[in-house]
Nucleic acid binder design. Structure first.
Lengths: 366, 366
DNA sequence: TTGAAAGCGATACCAT
DNA sequence: ATGGTATCGCTTTCAA
């Protein structure tokens, strides 16, 4: 038992000062590690601090310095491995620079996102990293800047917002994926996303309020159209934002008069659900149905067939976002940077390939 | 543009008070939502607050109230889907009660864990939820109590620590899994875990410093011994704490003079690696190698063969932990509760089963 | 090098 | 119902 803490209240700078017989200012200087103090004073104070079990109160410290050493992170769903990796990247980079991470889940809901941001700003985080659920309502994002805190957008840039962002090259990746499918002879290609519109129907690319998804759909539509496929938009399916929804939507899609011969899943959660259904319904993959997904989730390599994916550098994206934010916190004032990280097309076995066996993945830079 | 914020500094209670012509105390009352104020005063103040773009400073608020409305969470690896789900559970429960979550990654390193806890306590989180990397060094965990903050242990209880904990029924689950394997005729069953000892060798169950893993190994050893299998301990393999380590270790295991006919993977990350290797090396599953893992990760249902798993109620565990913590924060003072949630054995197709086809999972309560 | 005292932005007690 | 003021724990001038 080396606890000297008299069950009363935590020791403060004042207590330490009193015990060591120096002024509060001097004690604070050694305890806070700033200013100049004599070695003798330092020793006495440290000793007293030790005896009292002194622990600094970061809250009080933040209040006077105006910095909390904390960055706020708002993501759509921490349960999604995509965000899991990103948060890990952020977290590692943050700690390397001595910052903490406060995490908030928006559930892809703008109202929740708005509240989370408000709270985080009220808690005086030094800066924020946000994966905005939509890029239409951006008032709460602008408020971050008004509050004097830097903001970095993760995975989803917003054209109307002049702030740093880190995204993957979604447009190009979607084009490559669609092209691959078209080259393999597919004419009925569906694109399934968690994004939604009030009507749950896709009408116009402007209805898609998540930037990354919109870019993917644009790429998808364009390549399809170029290939002379009629009525591409009808193949865009919205609202697969829960596993149940994804399931219903996919079953519906596969049971239609003209089912798709290939599906592009906008995230790995959707791909997983599609995979399950294909299995349950005995739909042979890739022969009867080809599948491609964004995000090289760990499991995509071990299924039969293994899944062809767009590999996004998710961890790196998180890390880069944190780095950029910390640069701003350290005084960087350059113009907003829109960092776009390259992706890779990892060709595995879930796309019907005319005479190639499953001989390990073929990886292509995009 | 409805920003009235004069680029100077954020509006404070004093500013609002001044503009609305009332005292600081009154303004604080309406802004803070406490005490009693006349409707008229409320209106004026709210209006002034609006005009000034007043945002409360939670830091200052926390300092006087002593509560921050924040709970700290320390997990081993947020990238691990297990913790992803748990954190989601915590996060949802926390928000439902108006709490925020500060997340820290320990990387399963005690020193990092200690630092994370120290920081969180210094930041005056109201309470903590921790998945302790080891149950040997518990000084820093005891400090949490000394600092007057409640602590809830997640996934790993510590006998020597009298605090609330939420775990799965690891011991029983391990017994059931091992029994299943034994019943299927396996005599060479390996147990692979991320846990490690200084020598990387398993000698004694007391060397295992992670409670949940120790319980599992105990169950594993006991059932094996009961079944008359000699030299069980040699089948325990430690240190699969990165995908590379898991890979090396598994390759080593499978290449040995007497390779195991079945492997129990302590987490889904290890199982994934084993699955990959079996595939690469053309080892037929489940015929040549059976596999069982703890944690019903999403992908385990879609592989070929699908993987038999111990389903732990991970999200619920996180949720329960947060609930218990919040109860403490609301004044609950009962004796420490050790909540042990039941698991399920989900029998799928990765264990050689004498004449049963893959006809959907068979689920057993444990 | 050290100390006294003024904040930081809210809450809370005590009068009025 | 309202106002004045001490207070929380620390940092930060400003003098000495």
């Amino acid at each position: 038992m080396k606890e000297a803490q008299p069950k009363t209240t935590a020791a403060t700078v004042a207590d330490v000062a009193r015990l060591s017989g120096v002024s509060k200012a001097t004690a604070a200087r050694v305890l806070g590690g700033y200013g100049t103090v004599s070695d003798k004073a330092r020793d006495t104070v440290m000793q007293a601090a030790q005896a009292l079990g002194y622990r600094p109160n970061e809250l009080a410290r933040s209040m006077t310095t105006g910095r909390s050493g904390t960055i706020g992170v708002v993501v759509g769903d921490i349960e999604n491995p995509f965000f899991g990796s990103a948060v890990r990247g952020i977290s590692d980079a943050a700690r390397a620079s001595g910052f903490n991470v406060v995490l908030a889940n928006s559930g892809e809901d703008v109202a929740a996102e708005r509240m989370a941001i408000e709270t985080l700003v009220a808690k005086r985080v030094d800066g924020l990293i946000v994966s905005p659920a939509q890029d239409s309502a951006i008032g709460h994002l602008e408020d971050i800047g008004h509050a004097g805190r830097p903001l970095v957008l993760l995975d989803r840039a917003i054209a109307a917002l002049a702030v740093d962002s880190v995204t993957a090259d979604d447009r190009q990746a979607a084009e490559a994926v669609t092209r691959l499918l078209v080259e393999r002879g597919h004419r009925h290609i569906a694109y399934v996303t968690a994004c939604d519109t009030p009507t749950h129907l896709y009408r116009d690319t402007r209805d898609i309020l998540t930037a990354s998804v919109r870019e993917r759909i644009e790429g998808f539509l364009q390549v399809g159209a170029q290939a002379g496929i009629a009525d591409m938009p009808r193949w865009v399916r919205l609202g697969a934002n829960t596993s149940d929804a994804a399931r219903r939507l996919t079953i519906d899609l596969l049971g239609a008069a003209t089912p798709p011969s290939a599906i592009i899943a906008s995230d790995s959660l959707i791909a997983l659900e599609i995979f399950k259904i294909a299995r349950e319904q005995g739909i042979a993959m890739p022969d009867a149905l080809s599948l491609v997904t964004f995000h090289d989730a760990a499991w995509t390599a071990v299924t039969t067939p293994s899944v062809t994916v767009v590999r996004q550098p998710v961890y790196d994206m998180g890390e880069a976002a944190a780095r950029m934010l910390i640069e701003r916190l350290n005084g960087e004032t350059c113009a907003p940077r829109r960092l776009i990280l390259p992706t890779q097309l990892v060709e595995r076995a879930s796309v019907a390939v005319p005479g190639t066996a499953d001989a390990g993945p073929r990886i292509r830079r995009l």
